[in-house]
Design a protein around this nucleic acid. Structure first.
Length: 580
RNA sequence: GCGCCUGUAGCUCAAUGGAUAGAGCAAUGGCCUCCGGAGCCAUUUAUAGGAGUUCAAUUCUCCUCAGGCGCGCCA
């Protein structure tokens, strides 16, 4: 028995009674405060207008409709329909949960195939702390959707083409040539971080003067590829250079993929932007040729009349689709913009057959959302196919002072360093706790402390001490009653009911999260539950309890709680500890 | 200037439009003949300001103020 069957019973009762289908379908059973009962329904307020009666009178009618032995009593408090559930309710719920274990919270496959794309940081430097937030958000959304019965694919979009990558390669080249005493000019926009020098040094160490007599285009291509391999950890095309590089293992900077793996984040698919540039050149019009994949997208828009030329550039009429301004898709130089490759990429996703695609972007990409939706619509794809989750910036504080982060100046805290110092679990939890809409102030000193201040230890402690009860019971050979007697001869007190009700309600919480992606509710839920469990632990000893029936009842609470906590730890990607 | 996000306790953050706005940290005072005191209990303090919609507003609408971000032939 679960929230769905329970809610279904109530819906059915109301449907038969009310004859109003839409209304009874929108009924939701809500968790309520213990002083009001176990669960509540507020549908009477909504129906008051329809029936032209006061909520209180409507509730009176509704109460008479609902008859099930899962409910012990049902009351009407000024329109609130408060439900106190029965022993049978707990009997069916607890037995069902203990039978299914963690799978109680994992729903059957619902046929939806969803892709979540996240991190997708440019492979032009190590990940910084802000990327960690995006990583956790995407990873957790994926985990939640999986529990809701969706098939989920996690994808990383690697921008290994485009002008940022050229700039990166030029920066490496600058330092490479310096090793030979050659001073080349580097634009102010160029990357100047230590790691750029490390890459140049590595190239020098492995390849010596090999690239000195390359022409500029060739050396830039080679350095792009080498850079992506060293920084990201994987390249689309394994050139001979990469094979040589693989023989030599020493390189100071941890690759992006490795950092993420240490962070508990992994991907099912890596999509390289450069793959959009595969194939042959195809004519768009007599003045322009692009690679076939991009041409196809552009021609489609062109044929629909959504493209015009201005000052030699190709503009998309985005303003026809609610965007602020028209957008350049091809520069006057004939080069495609990021906007064109990105819509080509999203059309590719659409063609792969997902029912929905979720992109996790930093807030600074906000302006790009309307553009992408406009392009989707112009390409005859429902804009709702794409959900974009924007997360606010991470501000880093060290010794009370904000640490500014920039790849260009080279001063930033890497995610890798952060994981080294505060452990994966604490870092994940810290990122997960805050709503994506709020700016996250990350206090490095506090995070480094690894002390009681960190709520993740509270959770792990709760799990460990509960688990210890199970261990002790085995060790001591503690005797328990038949659990059937718990439901027929005993009853759960308020503290115990709160715990059971909360756990019963977890599926409903997860449903909500899967719709609005409010993943911060998971750690908050977990902490709330842990608090209730610790209160129970403190006041109601299990093994010491002499009455065997009570002892068994409390032991059930421990078992149910352990299953729920275990599931939550797995969902958050945090290690559960049986001993601390 | 226009658009988006945010403004809740001393600090960091919660609260599907629902009943008396909750936690942690910090402060003060209590709990170990213990299944783990990394815990429990008690006390203190808050919805930026103003209108509106609603039976009901921290939540929705509008205005004001404050902070962040965006408004490229960058990605």
């Amino acid at each position: 028995m679960d929230i769905y069957s329970f809610e279904g019973l109530i819906k059915k009762a109301l449907r038969e009674c009310l004859q109003i289908l839409e209304v009874s379908e929108s009924v939701k059973v809500l968790l309520t405060k213990e002083s009001f009962g176990d669960f509540t329904i507020n549908i009477a307020f909504k129906l008051a207008k329809v029936f032209k009666k006061s909520p209180k009178l409507v509730a009176d009618d509704l109460i008479n409709c609902i008859k099930t032995d899962l409910i012990e009593s049902i009351s009407n408090v000024n329109g609130y329909i408060n439900i106190k559930v029965s022993s049978k309710f707990y009997s069916e719920f607890v037995k069902s949960l203990l039978e299914k274990r963690e799978n109680y919270f994992i729903l059957e496959n619902n046929g939806n195939s969803i892709q979540v794309e996240f991190v997708s940081a440019n492979p032009t430097g190590p990940l910084h702390v802000g990327n960690g937030r995006g990583g956790i958000i995407g990873d957790t959304i994926a985990r939640v959707l999986e529990t809701r019965g969706c098939r989920v694919q996690r994808e990383y979009y690697v921008n290994d083409a485009g002008s940022k990558m050229d700039l990166f390669a030029e920066s490496v080249l600058y330092f490479y040539l310096k090793r030979f005493g050659i001073e080349k000019s580097l634009s102010d926009e160029g990357y100047k971080g230590e790691y750029i020098k490390d890459i140049a040094d590595k190239i020098y160490e492995v390849f010596k003067d090999k690239f000195l007599n390359y022409d500029n285009d060739s050396v830039i291509e080679a350095f792009k590829n080498i850079g992506v391999f060293l920084l990201f950890g994987k390249v689309r095309e394994e050139t001979d250079d990469i094979k040589v590089l693989k023989q030599s293992t020493s390189f100071k900077i941890e690759s992006i993929l490795k950092t993420l793996k240490r962070f508990g984040v992994s991907f099912d698919n890596i999509f390289f932007e450069s793959s959009l540039y595969e194939g042959v050149d195809v004519e768009v019009d007599p003045t322009l040729k692009l690679k076939e994949k991009l041409t196809k997208v552009l021609l489609d828009l062109l044929n629909k009349g959504y493209i015009y030329k201005s000052d030699g550039a190709y503009y998309f009429k985005a303003t026809l689709f609610n965007d602020d301004k028209d957008r350049v898709l091809v520069r006057s130089t004939g080069e495609p913009t990021y906007t064109l490759t990105d819509i080509a990429y999203h059309i590719d996703k659409f063609n792969r057959g997902y029912s929905k695609v979720i992109d996790v972007w930093g807030q600074d990409h906000f302006g790009h959302v309307a553009t992408m939706k406009a392009l989707l619509k112009a390409s005859n794809i429902d804009p709702d196919f794409l959900d974009v989750v924007l997360y606010q910036v991470v501000h880093l504080f060290e010794d009370g002072v904000e640490v500014m982060m920039s790849k260009h100046t080279g001063k930033f805290y890497t995610l890798s360093e952060l994981i080294n110092e505060v452990q994966k679990d604490a870092a994940r939890f810290f990122f997960l706790m805050k709503s994506v809409d709020t700016h996250l102030n990350f206090d490095i000193n506090l995070a480094k402390k690894q002390s009681v201040d960190n709520p993740v230890y509270y959770l792990q402690y709760t799990y460990a001490r509960l688990h210890n009860i199970i261990e002790e019971a085995k060790k001591r050979g503690t005797v328990f009653d038949d659990i059937e007697n718990v439901f027929t001869k005993a009853s759960f007190n308020e503290v115990e009911r709160v715990i059971l009700n909360k756990i019963f309600y977890l599926n409903s919480v997860l449903d909500d999260i899967s719709v609005d992606y409010s993943i911060h509710r998971i750690p908050n839920y977990a902490l709330d539950l842990a608090e209730n469990i610790n209160h129970f632990y403190q006041n109601y000893p299990v093994l010491k309890e002499e009455n065997v029936l009570n002892r068994t009842k409390r032991y059930l609470i421990v078992q149910v709680s352990l299953v729920a906590l275990s599931f939550l730890f797995d969902l958050m990607g945090i290690e559960k500890k049986e001993r601390m």
